[in-house]
Write a protein that binds this DNA or RNA. Sequence first.
DNA 1: GACAAGGGAGACCGATCTGTCTCCTCTGGC
DNA 2: GCCAGAGGAGACAGATCGGTCTCCCTTGTC
Lengths: 192, 192
Amino acid sequence: MERREQLVSVAFGLFYRYGVHAIGINRIIAESGVAKKTLYHHFASKEALVAATVDYRDRQFSSWIEGRTQGAPDGQSAIFALFDALDDWFNERETLIYPFHGCYFINVSAEFSDSNHPVHQQCASHKRAMLGLINRYMSQIFVDEKTVNTLSEAVATLKEGATVQAHVMGDLAAAVKAKAIAEELLRARLEP
Amino acid sequence: MERREQLVSVAFGLFYRYGVHAIGINRIIAESGVAKKTLYHHFASKEALVAATVDYRDRQFSSWIEGRTQGAPDGQSAIFALFDALDDWFNERETLIYPFHGCYFINVSAEFSDSNHPVHQQCASHKRAMLGLINRYMSQIFVDEKTVNTLSEAVATLKEGATVQAHVMGDLAAAVKAKAIAEELLRARLEP
DNA sequence: GACAAGGGAGACCGATCTGTCTCCTCTGGC
DNA sequence: GCCAGAGGAGACAGATCGGTCTCCCTTGTC
């Protein structure tokens, strides 16, 4: 449905910039040019719309990251490409994912803090998928399962940490610094 | 003022758990047993109260972290003690800072995304103070300024990343894993 | 005892919230 | 041409929002 996508896209933009609870339904329908009736035809409630925006961003972000890494010649280059992508995101050089207001999943998790809440679990699921993607690339570099898991979690933690530093402190070089740390961690295991 | 502190404490608890925009003034006065008139005697607006909770949490969190690290015999132990403290926080073993709903400053930054907003700047200021604390301990380990800065930012990024992993994914071992990475980074520079 | 100040309880204001409903128009299939 | 359904515009309901105001009771000071 074209209108459904329009609603989700506009709602995501507003939720991402201002926060979920700060944005009302009326604002969403006003900016998307869709009638309130139509919104409630497609979504049972505001929360259902929130869930749809999380799903929308999950697909958008994941496919973007995958596109930015899958062309890499080897696992190590893919990990580095991940941080290069983050750097473009933070510095708003990437139109596909512009603008940058921190990580939507972190932001939404803050407003739906209860870990049993479906929306919070969607966010957790996205982060698990990201970890899985990193893990796949890491498996191309190392064979030892423990090494793969440890380094994957380290890279994921650096990714989250860099995103926070970029958003909260405004450190736009956070991705470059995180990349250097990841490089050091990988090199330490490759050259014994 | 006793009533002022009561208000700030209750407001912080509610904002932290449910988010700032999800909590109304009426809820805060109901739970703190303070009249609305009194609230507006102490704070010009809800936003002023939000700012007070950020300041309250900044002092509480910073003094807690400082207390948990300043007794360490050397800089390296202090950095490790930082991650031990995080581990207790995530697993709610620390009554001084119980409960855990992620980092308040990250959460609030998500709801006040504009980096020019005073509340967002308060959050940035807290993160800078944390980085400064880490930097002080790191200076006790290394003399080269570039090494100190690089490793301080790495530790700060690991701290933020671990907090996110613990909150969003529910990975309660995130601090332990981050500590291991920090240990590896420090050791690599100490034993050449 | 008189009296000012602080604060509690809550009415009240206009605005906005989520969500429902009515009325009307447009459009596509028959 | 006819008619069902989608969707636009927006009134409406009941609740809650941030914030102001009045009324009244307590308490401390003289």
